[in-house]
Design a protein around this nucleic acid. Structure first.
Lengths: 346, 346
DNA sequence: TTGTAGGCGTTATCAC
DNA sequence: GTGATAACGCCTACAA
């Protein structure tokens, strides 16, 4: 009697047939339109369950021009600082039935641009980006497409966009001040690679700028750039500690780099913080794993994700008013830093 | 003369008008159909660039029933072992212009089911899952929808699906054997929470099973379950070390747990590996950060991601032949384990 | 409250 | 090699 279950997935019209109503009624039920009679609604719901009907997102999106899709382009998921942000972002979006498309750019501004193009094709309703420095073609592209965008890990927003994050310059300043206050006079920094990475750059600027303001000669402050991994941090530290004017305080652009620096010190028998203070940035879980534990600046990674989600969920009207949300960095003092013990002599 | 640029995004027909051809030709160019004349193609390409035309993914998907979307549901991105896998997955998919929708289930099988439903609505062409143990409704749902699926971090596949990973039981076995060979006789284990987590369960089974086979009385082997974070690992270790029969070898279901255990030992002045050997699982970056560094089993997280991507990219025909890819776990011996020093008496 | 019908932007099957 | 044209599955005026 019943048509043998077709191989093709059930559609609105199949549900309508089974529920003995029109497809508009089914559609209304699907969209929680209140103008549907109670018995009607129940019949439809039953039919949907019976058929295992699943709406076709593409058709819905095409017709309604609402995809309920959000995109994010981050440098990498291998670094916890980004993975944690994405986790917060996804969690919040998921609560609202919005799906997240994730892309990793590997710190490459061209790759990022390509991925943004693809996200626009997919019809994402907003894009979450990291940092404020991007391919010059990116912003015009997003503007033309009318796709809202949020920068994270920065407070500098592009006009028409939003920024949710912290001030990287202030981070550098905080590092400089903290180490200065401990009495140090010989500084160095292990920074992230600054190419296509404004955050790394700003942390350096903040650090050196504040040292200058505090009366130190920044010409003598060595800054090594290193990729965000343990070995690069270790290697950078080995370079810095071999310089003629050996630093007694090293500020690192990331906990990973600081951890690498600590590894070097341990291997070489350099006492931390006795011989040299080492400070990190991020306050990842690893900051509590090293010996000694890391003094660091806490970055509100998860919060950035959830706030970015709120922005993405807001409709375009509310978005037009510029959103600048600056979250605080928090200084976490642990054992890797201490007062300067250097005698006056060599 | 020219119509003022409309607020609405350019469509196929706009490109066709500018290139003075039909929309079919434009569509052909977009899809790399070779049956297009050279001059024709060039005119179209120029028009596309000039208008900043971006194809509408929803319309394409609706018409062609190819979304070029893949979904992944993982427990969390806060744990590097999953973030790294996802990074590999995304990288490979991205090379082929396929987008990844990511969902985190928070180790909750019901949440996972809901997210799978949504992924099906979005029309994903394959779903990547973690582990082999899921809500009983999940597999029928995927089968009905005809969505291919891969399990990762396991070798146990569901019929019709694929599995790309390693054998968790073997991991437990390897841990038991390694510690046994060091001469230990008093064992304990800190495992992950086993609810909705078959991997954690299997690691326990492998560990205890092998100890039994090696002639140890497993009734005396304490197994503590802990969430995958430092503090839980620390706390579990504190429990284990207070038991009457103090273990000299503790196998942990994750490096994070092992790191927590190490923290406890350091705080209590318990020497590792002198008083107790501690072994991890995963070989995350943190395994090289602790003091001593962790002996652990290397999990091929990134490879699982790229292999899973290959599966997802394969068309459904090739998928039908069951895919079972078992990747090897590799024992990494570092400083956190050593021979048993326990005297014979209490 | 419910049903009818047109069209969202593509792709693909036809003719030419 | 190129151009009409009919779907794809759904939403939403508008009509009843």
């Amino acid at each position: 009697m019943s048509e043998a279950a077709n191989q093709t997935a059930p559609k609105l019209v199949d549900v309508a047939r089974l529920a003995e109503c029109s497809i508009s009624t089914v559609s209304r039920v699907l969209n929680d339109n209140p103008t549907v009679g109670k018995s009607e609604r129940e019949r439809v719901l039953k039919a949907i369950a019976q058929l295992g009907y699943v709406p076709n997102g593409s058709a819905r999106a095409l017709r309604s021009s609402r995809t309920r899709l959000v995109g994010a382009i981050i440098p990498t998921l291998d670094h916890a600082i980004y993975a944690v942000m994405v986790n917060g972002l996804e969690s919040r979006l998921s609560e609202e039935g919005v799906s997240l498309i994730i892309n990793t750019s590997d710190y490459d501004a061209d790759k990022e641009l390509k991925q943004a193009r693809l996200l626009i094709e997919r019809g994402v309703e907003a894009i979450v980006l990291v940092g404020a420095c991007h391919n010059p073609k990116l912003m015009p592209l997003l503007d033309r497409a009318g796709v809202g965008h949020v920068f994270t890990y920065t407070t500098r927003a592009h006009e028409g966009g939003a920024a949710i994050g912290f001030d990287n310059v202030k981070g550098g300043v905080a590092g400089a001040r903290f180490l200065h206050d401990l009495g140090h006079v010989a500084f160095a920094m292990i920074a992230g690679v600054t190419k296509d990475n404004d955050r790394a750059r700003e942390r350096i600027d903040g650090f050196l700028g504040e040292l200058d303001r505090l009366g130190h000669d920044t010409a003598t402050v060595a800054v090594a750039e290193a990729r965000y991994d343990l070995e690069s941090g270790r290697h950078a530290m080995s370079q810095l500690m071999r310089r003629p004017r050996r630093p007694t305080a090293v500020f690192c652009g990331s906990d990973i780099l600081a951890a690498g620096a600590l590894k070097y010190c341990r291997a070489e028998g350099i006492d931390v913080p006795g011989d040299v203070s080492v400070m990190g940035f991020d306050n990842l879980e690893i900051a509590e794993l090293t010996t000694p534990e890391l003094t660091t600046l806490e970055v509100p990674a998860r919060s950035m994700g959830t706030y970015a989600a709120e922005y993405a969920l807001a409709d375009s009207r509310r978005r037009t008013q510029d959103v600048h949300r600056e979250l605080a960095l928090r200084l976490i003092v642990r054992g890797s830093t201490g007062p300067c013990h250097d005698g006056p002599g060599e």
